[in-house]
Design a protein around this nucleic acid. Structure first.
Lengths: 101, 101
DNA sequence: TATCTAATTCGATATTTGTTGAACTAATTA
DNA sequence: TAATTAGTTCAACAAATATCGAATTAGATA
């Protein structure tokens, strides 16, 4: 649901979490350590991002590692494209591309 | 501010208004007529979209016409691109393009 | 001028959202 | 087994948000 995705992205902390995860997977505690916010609050943010399929969780022992899962970003991407009809946008990497400009 | 843009986009009615305006400029009353929501509420939504530079207003007599103003969509677009590094995305239409796939 | 229409602003309200400390679950370690 | 650690869930609360009817502003028209 695109509503869920937009809701998840409508928060500074959550967008920062996503940018943080560009570095690779991180445990919930590591993520919480980067913000001046309580762990329950971070846990809640992670839950909303997970609900929106923007991140995924993998449990390892007593740790839970979170990483980017940008599948649903494509959906939002597509939503934006409708407003920019004169621009060519590739959502998928083409097999062969020859571009001259 | 990207925060303002994400906030503006985080609402079904406002996203619908944007899609409606793809047809061209419409007066506030015309827009309100498309939704089962009071005019004050629509007026508020239009204000938030305007604050985010997603639409612009032009007064003509006693009417106010709203139309798309997708400049700030580019900013959000760019925000998304950072999460899709292996895909080529053109925000601007290139002068010449030869593509084979 | 008085009236009508288009749209916004105001004031109030119900709902949603972000936040916290405390309690809880599950895995590790002494 | 008892204690520790990582993380979530719970309950409560403050702030933000969407909504509405009423009041207000501004332009058009009789």
């Amino acid at each position: 649901m695109i509503t869920t995705t937009f809701k998840a992205l409508n928060d500074d902390t959550r967008r920062s979490i996503m940018e943080l995860l560009k570095q690779g997977e991180k445990s919930a505690g590591d993520i919480a350590g980067e913000f001046n916010i309580s762990k329950p609050s971070i846990s809640h943010h992670l839950d909303l991002l997970k609900q929106a399929n923007l991140i995924k969780a993998k449990k390892k022992g007593q740790y839970i590692y979170y990483s980017l899962h940008t599948r649903s970003l494509e959906e939002v991407f597509r939503w934006f494209v409708q407003f920019k009809p004169d621009e060519r946008v590739h959502l998928r990497k083409p097999k062969i591309r020859l571009v001259a400009s």
